[in-house]
């Protein structure tokens, strides 16, 4: 039913596949995510959705409108909230206070994982845009990690919009699509996906059913 859940990136490791092949996996601790609110098309909300939470925070850090929300649901204040559209049948099957966990995912399934990449601060063009370093020989001097020319001369007499330059890099929301779920441990709430996931260990991630899927089996 639930096609997405909050989780935390635990870290990467390696396991052995069924044929003894080595599989690099990222371990995610998924859930528990309580349903904080259910919206239905019949009510004044006008559409079917559930609001799910993850992690707790102190009541004093919650603003008044949200305090009301959590009080009504009878749930501890949640640090992260996200609304998810669900079908009309599914919205009948859920109620406020239900806990969603890693059992929403099965091994062999494709998922998308959304995370916040590691912040890298103000970064030069070599790291930020994968530009090449200038030549170190053949008369080059005083430029080491420059990106080269910014454009032409009096025509057009300006730098084109979108020119790749140095600037803030990282700390951005990034999705990794179609990761293969290789292992699920419902008891411990662990989901292991093949490959890497954006963000630092311990970071909050959102894991959901793959939206696009893959065209041909890998």
């Amino acid at each position: 039913m639930a096609n997405g859940l909050f989780g935390r990136k635990v870290g990467m490791t390696q396991i052995f596949g069924p044929e003894g092949n080595r599989v690099p996996v990222t371990v995610l601790q998924v859930g528990p995510c309580p349903i904080v609110r259910v919206k239905t098309a019949e009510s004044s909300d006008g559409y079917n959705a559930i609001l799910i939470g993850f992690g707790t925070k102190k009541l004093k850090h919650v603003n008044k409108p949200q305090q009301g929300l959590f009080a009504k649901a009878g749930i501890e204040p949640q640090a992260h909230l996200r609304e998810m559209r669900v079908s009309a049948e599914d919205v009948q099957a859920v109620e406020v206070g239900m806990i969603l966990d890693a059992s929403a995912f099965q091994a062999g399934q494709r998922v998308d994982v959304v995370g916040t990449t590691k912040g890298r601060g103000f970064t030069g063009v070599i790291k930020r845009h994968n530009m090449h370093e200038p030549k170190a020989t053949h008369g080059t001097h005083e430029v080491f990690r420059h990106g080269g020319s910014l454009g032409t001369r009096t025509t057009p007499g300006r730098v084109f919009l979108g020119k790749k330059m140095a600037g803030h890099y990282g700390n951005s929301r990034v999705s990794t699509q179609n990761l293969l779920v290789s292992f699920v441990d419902v008891e411990k709430g662990l989901v292991a996906v093949r490959g890497s996931v954006p963000g630092a260990n311990g970071g909050i991630v959102w894991i959901q059913e793959a939206t696009k899927g893959i065209k041909a089996p890998v």
Binding site: V10, G11, T13, Q14, I15, F16, V25, V27, Q29, F183, D185, K188, L190, A192, N201, G202
Partner: peptide, 15 residues
Amino acid sequence: MNQKKLLDAIRNPHL
């Protein structure tokens, strides 16, 4: 549980 223990839960069965 800390991170190492969670990772161990996944990888230790393979040892």
